[in-house]
């Protein structure tokens, strides 16, 4: 039996007084790759934020269990320390904090152990090379002035350096040119295949999925997971859109 990693049960999520997710359940086992699709505004990013513990998103019902532990009430840093990661749809800029200083500090705090600077530098250089990132980016301020595509690469760099067990990639492929998609895919593949990391990939396209082996595809419409299928569903959606799921969602809501 596959090792259980993440169990989301009947999750209700609100921002201020608006409920955005209505009873979402999801199971991800260690090493699995799940794809999450859905129309704009369906609540995909909301689910990603909630799993990662963004305090603006209130869990009003249900639970999140990670690695056998109920983490529903844990703060984001504690979740990260337990092996969760979120690649942001729009990564934030932090002036005055260099990418390398940030990563070093994150690795120290995440592991609670001192990090060997030399080994860190070497790993950082190698990972940047894999992602075709200019080494000078390490000494630039975190995401400040980076193009959309460069920011996404920087997210994958963090994924590879921080070595989580489970990563949510929120539209990491959007805004990337053809070559960048290939590079970023290679990075994700490294995480998925060589390290056996589990993934929840939020995407609107198939390009990033070509290199990855997908186990399940979920469709989220208006805050509900309305359908779960295999990898073939991705192509189906790309051809036919979300229409039939939207109808299903409307029917479900009526009940």
């Amino acid at each position: 039996m596959a090792e259980q990693l993440l169990q989301v049960r009947n999750l209700n999520v609100s921002v201020e007084d608006t409920e955005l997710l209505h009873g979402v359940s999801l199971d991800v086992n260690a090493g699995e790759t799940h794809v999450l699709m859905g129309p704009n505004g369906a609540g995909k990013s909301t689910l990603g934020y909630t799993l990662m513990g963004n305090p603006a998103y209130h869990v009003t019902g249900g639970s999140i269990v990670f690695d056998g532990e109920d983490i529903t009430g844990l703060s984001a840093d504690k979740r990260a320390q337990r092996g969760m990661f979120l690649s942001f749809q729009t990564p934030l800029e932090v002036p005055g904090l260099t990418l390398s200083a940030f990563l070093l500090s994150a690795m120290r705090q995440k592991t609670g152990k001192p990090v060997k600077i030399f080994a860190f530098q070497k790993e950082l250089e190698e990972t940047m090379r894999l992602l075709h990132m200019d080494p000078s980016f390490a000494e630039r301020d975190l995401n400040v002035g980076l193009s959309g595509g460069e920011k996404k690469k920087a997210e994958i760099l963090q994924l590879l350096m921080l070595r989580p067990k489970f990563a949510i990639l929120d539209e990491t492929d959007s805004g990337l040119d053809v070559d960048a998609v290939r590079t970023v895919s290679a990075g994700i593949e490294e995480y998925q295949k060589k390290r056996g990391g589990a993934l929840l990939v939020i995407t609107h396209s198939t390009r990033i999925l070509e290199a990855l082996s997908v186990d399940y595809t979920h469709v989220l419409v208006k805050g509900r997971l309305v359908y779960t299928g295999g990898p073939e569903l991705v192509d189906d959606i790309n051809e036919h859109g979300f229409e039939r799921f939207e109808a299903a969602s409307a029917a479900e809501k009526k009940q």
Binding site: D77, P95, G96, A106, K110
Partner: peptide, 30 residues
């Protein structure tokens, strides 16, 4: 201090107080 930026740093395993301190130190960096 943007709450989003604090959450971003926290999502990498950095504690809230440390995240705030890092943002403030960054501000003071020049």
């Amino acid at each position: 201090i943007s709450d989003e930026a604090v959450f971003y740093l926290m999502s990498r395993g950095i504690s809230e107080s440390e995240a705030r301190a890092m943002i403030v130190s960054g501000f003071a960096n020049p």
